[in-house]
Amino acid sequence: MWSTPFLDGDVIVLTISFPVIVYIAAVRVWNYNCTADLTYCGVKLVTVYLDGKLVSPGVQGLLTLRRAPGNCHFNFAQDLSLSEQLPYNFIRNSLFLASPHSGSGVMLGDEEYESPVMPQGFVFQLLILSTWGDPYYVGLNGLELYNQDGDKIRLTENNIGAFPDSVNVLEGVNGDVRTPEKLVDGVNDTLDGRHMWLAPILPSQLNRIYVVFDYPVTVSMIKLWNYGKTPSRGIKEFEILVDDLLVYNGVLDKVQGITKTAVKVPYRTVLFTADKELVKREHSNQVRNSSYGHDVQLLNDHQRVTSGGSYISADQSQRPLTSLVPTTHSRSLHDL
């Protein structure tokens, strides 16, 4: 890593020289990631010049760098596009945008849930606290994020990460298809394991799903499809953090009523908007507000002690094997 002394008012110049003319479309950066505390030494605002000419878009050419996560749970590279088409002029000193609607919260059923309206940030994190009973594995079929206008945000495998990544981190498991990018492949109402994510529950760790952006994104709604293949492995209690700030906690319904002739994996919605039409439309799909405070004890670093669904003290030697891998060059799969 690189570090240098810095005082307010200083201008630090990092120069990259090439022996021949090159064409630059973007700059990829990894911010300072020495420790969780020292990530605050990372660069926040930059401008980019090419042969002395300002080429970075945004207000006065300022680009905001994402703070490093302080871990290596996902690839935290950030691409700074030099195209005017991308919204890099989202320079904000505050995490949350002011609500365009009246009211201080979002109605969830018969209770008022005080949630920040439309959080904005670089990293949206789903922190998984428990499952619906399986102490060894946790999974999710899919997720979708929607912007401040209610339009679905296009997500690719570059936006998604998980820790632990998948069951492939286990010794002796290779090629399992239930990897994080399946969460954003658009096939969610299914029992086909090729379109799901599954990861082991490991001692002294909480499972996490990351949705990462190169620029600050505002979210009005998140849709979640729980794990349908083995419902007991679905997410139960969870939290949502935006740039490490807690913005929501809730209970995701268990998938039920699945038969060979009736495959229906419903989605559940977390709303961050007071828009009356959207609240009315998603009323029956809203995630239940969490009461896990009576069932779950957490240490300061979010380590799980107990939970209402799964237990961290599970005997790892008794972990059942699971594998969903292609058996041939065809699309057929083998599941253990």
Rank of each mutant, 00 (worst) to 15 (best):
M1R: 09
W2P: 01
T4I: 11
F6K: 06
L7W: 14
I21P: 07
N33R: 06
L38V: 08
G42P: 00
G42C: 01
G42D: 01
K44P: 05
L45Q: 05
T47V: 11
V55D: 04
S56V: 01
L62A: 07
T64V: 04
T64A: 09
L65C: 06
F74N: 10
A77R: 15
S83D: 14
Q85D: 08
P87W: 03
Y88A: 00
N89E: 08
I91K: 00
L97P: 08
S102Q: 13
S104R: 15
S104F: 14
V106C: 13
V117A: 13
M118T: 05
M118F: 05
V123T: 08
L127E: 11
I128L: 14
S130W: 12
D134M: 03
N141Q: 01
G142W: 01
L143S: 07
Y146D: 13
Y146L: 06
G150S: 09
R154Y: 09
R154L: 14
N158P: 01
D176I: 01
P180D: 04
K182S: 13
N188R: 06
G193A: 12
M196A: 13
W197E: 04
S204R: 13
L206A: 11
L206P: 06
N207G: 09
V211C: 12
D214F: 05
K223R: 10
K223T: 08
W225H: 05
N226I: 00
K229Y: 13
I235N: 02
K236G: 03
E239T: 12
I240D: 10
D243L: 10
D243R: 09
D253Y: 05
V255L: 05
G257H: 04
A262R: 09
V265K: 00
P266C: 02
Y267S: 11
T273H: 14
L278T: 10
E282P: 02
Q286Y: 15
Q297D: 15
Q297K: 15
H302D: 15
H302G: 06
R304A: 04
V305A: 03
T306L: 13
T306N: 14
T306W: 10
S307W: 06
S310C: 06
S310K: 02
I312H: 01
S313L: 07
S317K: 09
P320Y: 13
T322I: 12
L324M: 13
V325N: 15
V325L: 09
P326R: 08
P326A: 09
P326H: 12
R331K: 12
D335I: 13
L336T: 09
